[in-house]
Amino acid sequence: MDVSFSGLYTSAKYLLQSKNYGKKYNLSDIAFTLQETAFAMLTEVTERALAHTEKKEVLLTGGVAANKRLQQMIEYISREHKARYEVVPLRYAGDNGVMIAWTGILQYNSAGSDKLIDTIIQPKERMDNIKIPWRT
């Protein structure tokens, strides 16, 4: 059920730098395409998960849950699989800043700070491999 979005942004960037930009397509075309592609990926894995587990409920959460197009797509496949569809209220789907900050506080309180040099981005890091020091 893993999805990888690496390549998607790069591809969008190339489109912006291309000589066809502003002629064959404009900024909103790129944004639209990017969104449709990324959401189709998310919806596809959700559908696979639904078909495989035969779960009867889907809950859409997180910042992107505010997006009406994603809501529409997830609602569609939920209905196809006769699962109940719910989405978090808009006020909980906006900015994730508080969640990120709170995680930072928990991390700092239990494991202290990190040196800036150690805070590199690991694109292939897996959620289920991340150590949670305030839980162990």
Binding site: E36, A40, E44, I77
Partner: peptide, 13 residues
């Protein structure tokens, strides 16, 4: 065909 996908994208995929 997957109806949740944009038709052009769906065909391509």
């Amino acid at each position: 065909p997957k109806k949740y996908r944009l038709e052009e994208l769906d065909k391509k995929i």
